[in-house]
Nucleic acid binder design. Structure first.
Lengths: 260, 260
DNA sequence: TCTATCGCGGCAACTAATCGACCACCCGAA
DNA sequence: TTCGGGTGGTCGATTAGTTGCCGCGATAGA
């Protein structure tokens, strides 16, 4: 697993990613390890340069600064957004105000939807968690392009398949695991994605607030704080000024329950 | 909304569906009402008779009796299963033994996966909850067919999109609503799908056990029993020999929280 | 017709998790 | 320098939900 830039790279130059080249990206989710899902496919990876150019000609480019909203839950949408650089957090807000983060998407993936062709209503919101470059592909163009460029259809199908896997895996976690188990799982996953070896253990090299974590596991901030504190008491993790260090991955593994 | 046969139609002739014709089906999920999702698309609906024949030629037919397993979580899979008649329950089993029902799928939809082309591992299981006719379409054939029959690609994309919506909606419910709210939601949804008007209220014309309901909302059977009992005390619902009658949909609506 | 099984219901003890509120701290902006 | 917002930490009260168990009645199968 490769080290990605911190969410807060802007404020933490040590972790800043060097002039990012679009890479078929990761996706950060509260789910089974990437192993069982396979890596996320890149929408345009299978296209020839020429086909890619045809497709991108229909796109509208956007630059999005950290914290800015790409699309809003409830708004009418049109087509999809392809991420070229940066990172997009996709989340749902319940009427009660509670939020659940569906995923953090990285370059090569597309977000928006849930539909790709039709123009329905966004079922969730997307905001940039780091400065991002986005290409919007309108639904109508996309539908025409699919017939013209079959590889694009394959790319879309694979992308949608992957999203289906992600969301169902999320539902599986949420439906069958306790919050504590989910948190243990998430920490291991974060260590895998952003982990940096250290004298004591593995430092999670990305600054997530307790609230961020809470949104990912579907809990309250307080509960995350309490759980982390308990883990700290047991010597499983250590907190150093808002950084989390995993000391005993074996115990975390145990906490998250059996399987995979 | 139209009345469908009971899960237990075999034991309850009154509710049995008359010689079912394949209908572009519903899908039963713990989610927002169908309104916001749009109906589920039928995979072959957009095809000409000829195209349909080309596609189905690659399929292998299966007859599945009630209770029989179509595919098993963890097993290698190949392609998708198209439902012609019957009903398939798709569910995930956690290592702890807890189950969550992802959906009940009706004719016109395809199940299996999560992948359509590749041959990965089933992330969930599928069993028939009523006698069903199934057509299996192998992954390799499917990939070739997509290029030959573009409408099939569109059908697949729309089907996958719908599944993505379903699963994300499920994750949204599970991540942001309490079990009680989810149960209230589910009851209203069931009333909409299977409801039969009655002197007192709406009878849910399909026999779901408490365990079935529990699997749908991601809770234990006991909790469902307790919750239903409390609702009964408040006069919101009534139980008549394992049938549920909705007396006060307005109160249920209130319980499930705001929104939609 | 008998018996095994399943679904329903209830109960008690327990813990996981929420809610709301408050405070201290740090850091960045003015 | 001060101010203010975001973050982490904590507390107490309350509730939601789990676990495990037992018993009854209906049903299906032998």
């Amino acid at each position: 697993m490769q080290l990605l830039a911190s969410v807060k790279s802007a404020t933490n130059p040590v972790l800043a990613r060097p002039a990012a080249t679009p890479q078929a990206g990761h996706s950060l989710l509260l789910t089974e390890s990437a192993r069982s899902l396979g890596g996320p496919p890149s929408l345009l990876a299978a296209l020839t340069d020429r086909e890619r150019e045809i497709v991108l000609r229909h796109g509208r480019r956007k630059v999005l600064y950290r914290g800015k909203t790409l699309f809003n839950q409830g708004a009418k949408h049109d087509g999809i957004y392809l991420i070229e650089t940066g990172r997009i957090r996709v989340f749902y807000t319940a009427p009660s105000g509670r939020e659940i983060t569906l995923a953090y998407w990285h370059p090569g993936n597309f977000v928006g939807g849930p539909e790709v062709f039709g123009s329905g209503v966004h079922q969730w919101s997307g905001v940039a968690t780091s400065n991002s470059n986005i290409v919007q592909l309108p639904g109508k163009d996309l539908r025409a392009l699919v017939v013209e460029v079959p590889s694009l259809a394959i790319g879309l199908i694979e992308g949608l398949t992957f999203k289906g896997k992600c969301y169902s895996a999320l539902a599986q976690m949420l439906g069958t695991r306790s919050i504590t188990e989910r948190l243990a799982h998430l920490l291991l996953h974060l260590a895998q994605l952003y982990g940096v070896a250290d004298a004591d253990g593995v430092v999670i090299g990305a600054a997530f607030t307790h609230a961020d974590l809470a949104h990912m596991v579907g809990a309250t901030r307080q509960w995350v704080t309490i759980s982390l504190k308990r883990m700290q008491e047991k010597g499983i993790v250590a907190s150093r000024r808002s950084q989390i260090v995993i000391l005993r991955p074996d115990l975390l593994q145990e906490m998250r329950g059996l399987g995979d």
